[in-house]
Nucleic acid binder design. Structure first.
Ligand SMILES: [Mn+2]
Ligand SMILES: [Mn+2]
Ligand SMILES: [Mn+2]
Ligand SMILES: [Mn+2]
Lengths: 224, 224
DNA sequence: CCTGAATGTTAGACTGACCTAACGGGAGTG
DNA sequence: CACTCCCGTTAGGTCAGTCTAACATTCAGG
């Protein structure tokens, strides 16, 4: 069975379950999945039961949701599709990196394996998507992600942005305005814990920028 | 309401009803639609009733199926999507013209209006798809098709292929092997009616080619 | 250790898409 | 002019996905 035999929601569920553990170890909840899919929790609960029946996840009622080996394989394939498509949309069709997520979220269920292969060749086998996320190799594992959340980065040490979560397009547009993107270099001035504010300085800029915690959680950086 | 609010089968039904009258005036039948969609006639009958309830077609039981103005608008939009996507797949992703139909048949339901616009711009507003079919302008009418079926073309007069039906990929591959494609120049030698064979000569070729009636019905030509 | 708020599950209903099986209409043939 | 056979429709069933409403479980604060 190939990933294309699954329904679009099933493909999305698997992708979300897998993605949840990519950048943090806390497992996904039914509520979080429902929120991201724009659907009620009962719908997700149902869907998970169907996935379990197909042997793609293990799940006991009220228990945690885990991918089986088969489920993980399909999930990684979907992540590969999503990220290749995002890269394609930016490089070939001139999308902004803040626009691609929603388009890829739909296209990933429609493109054939052939089209994915051709896109991969046209782009010369890219390894990072426009947000800095690693693109898994075909049938394989992703190049493991690097970096720490900006909110957890040491102050006064120059760092480079390696990825920015693509979950919120409005936030991405805000970052784009500020000049924050993968490969941007910056220095954390200070974290102000109770205000939940992280102040950063962009190399070659006049003023410092204050970021709230949702922003500082969405950006990953690595030391230079 | 935009075309994207319809289900994929509904979009396909509208497209097929519209396309049926593009190259011949005989209206589509439930059976023909079922065959092309690979479903049972009862499924199509059902679907048509739903389209009628939405005001997109008119249909009395056992009667003919006609698009309403709203239905025609959606149908033309889907034809535009399909043909732009086919052109895109050939020009940008290097597909063969015999490979694109099935991919476009799925993608047409998934791409956004934005993506269609960007593809149209990238290709510089193409007017013909890889099979020679006219690409309707946005929201508008197609450049009306030209030509007659090869089976009905006068013998001994040089003609040029303007379109080849994309319905059968195997036939397209056969044509590609023979060197038959849009813009190919040829001359009909003779029609042999009871054998249902049309003999053609390609300019600059040694041997003549015999085509059966299904092939001669799938190729449209225009006089030079 | 108890308990209530938050979270997740089940029940029941609806829709669209499909199927098989049974039935109906109509165009052409004898 | 009647009959037949082809085609289309309806009836009835399944499945996935969605919802609302009711119910169950968990676990953290008191
Ligand atoms: Mn998706
Ligand atoms: Mn991404
Ligand atoms: Mn086509
Ligand atoms: Mn289609």
């Amino acid at each position: 069975m190939t990933v294309s035999d699954l329904t679009a929601p099933a493909q999305d569920y698997l992708k979300m379950i897998w993605s949840a553990t990519e950048w943090s170890e806390s497992p996904i909840t039914v509520g979080a999945m429902a929120e991201r899919m724009g659907v009620k929790p009962s719908t997700v609960s149902d869907g998970i039961r169907r996935l379990a029946k197909q042997g793609l996840v293990t799940h006991a009622p009220y228990g945690s949701i885990e991918l089986t080996d088969a489920g993980r394989e399909h999930a990684v394939e979907m992540v590969r599709r999503h990220r290749l498509l995002e890269t394609f949309l930016v490089q070939i069709l001139g999308y902004g990196w803040d626009e691609v997520h929603e388009e890829a979220e739909v296209l990933e269920h429609a493109v054939s394996a052939t089209m994915i292969r051709r896109i991969d060749e046209l782009l010369e086998h890219p390894t990072r998507d426009p947000h800095g996320d690693p693109i898994p190799s075909p049938g394989g594992l992703p190049n493991p992600p690097e970096g720490v959340r900006l909110a957890a980065a040491d102050p006064d040490r120059p760092v480079t942005i390696t990825r920015i979560s693509d979950a919120d397009p409005d936030m991405l547009r805000y970052f784009a305005e500020l000049g924050l993107a993968p490969d941007t270099q910056l220095t954390v001035r200070a974290h102000r814990p109770y205000a939940d504010i992280t102040t950063i300085h962009l190399d070659g800029r006049e003023v410092d920028i204050d970021l709230g915690s949702s922003a500082a959680e969405a950006i990953w950086v690595v030391g230079n």
